[in-house]
Amino acid sequence: MIRESYLNWLILLGLLAVPIWALTADEPFTITLATRAAILALAAVGLNIALGIGGLVSFGHAMFFGIGGYVMGILAYHAQSFTPLDLGAFSIAGTKSMPIIWLVALILSGLAAWIVGLLSLRTGGVYFIMITLAFAQMFFYFSISWSTYGGEDGLSIYVRNGFPGLNTLDPIQFFGICFVLLCLVLFLNARLQGSPFGLALNAARQVPARVETVGLDPMRIKLLAFVISGAITGLAGALFADLNRFVSPTMFSWQMSGEFIVLIIIGGVGRLMGPVVGASLFVLLEHWLGGLTEFWHIYLGTILLLIVLFARGGLIGFLTGKEGAHV
């Protein structure tokens, strides 16, 4: 059995070591795979705050992922076509600058999470799972019929957006950006878990009535957690769109939401590094099994089943010998 804090550092170093090795071995594709893992991990870290600590099983986080993606797509599309974005009362120019795109993605997905959370948190249990799914489906169908930005075909961005002082077209530099953001969010998550807010959120998942008795409003705590969670997943969406230089309604699909949940459960629900382990393993399996057989989903399904049935607490729970949070 390994101490979880040692394991966490080991996992983070592992994710950093792979692309550095790939750089020396001149394998740019491996760097792209690691970048993909880092971005998916970031999205799942976002979900893990709502799901793991707060017990809010959202089956609609693809909604925020897609909002982030479309923020990047729309702003960059207006910048590359030199047409201003008309917002009715006023119009703004598009941008190819990552920090601005991130900020807009964080704000808009956080705002969406606030509205969706306000409505969804009235329900609980299975109903919460399903109402979040319904909101994501609304965005999915809306993006399909929104022909201004490509509709079903999606939107291609020809050149990756820029970051001051860096060449984002270089795979290792783009990986660096994603990795630093992932570390920042993980740090935030770790601080949050130990903070009074994190403790209250944890308590609101376990015994909402008792939280209320000590004078806290569990609804407000959960809503704030949902907003933070949605904003982080939105940021990941903007990065994901930049990685592929492409946005499409698939980013809003329910399979995407399902994938985020899968990433968290593989790693371990409520674990700080659970999403990182889950995303790395998922990308690895996708690449390795996908190269081995066209029907790799059968093996993925079998592995997932075995994890659910025999490794409760995910891989980190399995390695540290401790069960995870109960959701």
Partner: peptide, 13 residues
């Protein structure tokens, strides 16, 4: 419920 969702998601695959 979370485990059920994941396990039956695996069955879909």
């Amino acid at each position: 419920h979370l485990d059920q969702v994941l396990a039956t998601f695996a069955l879909i695959l």
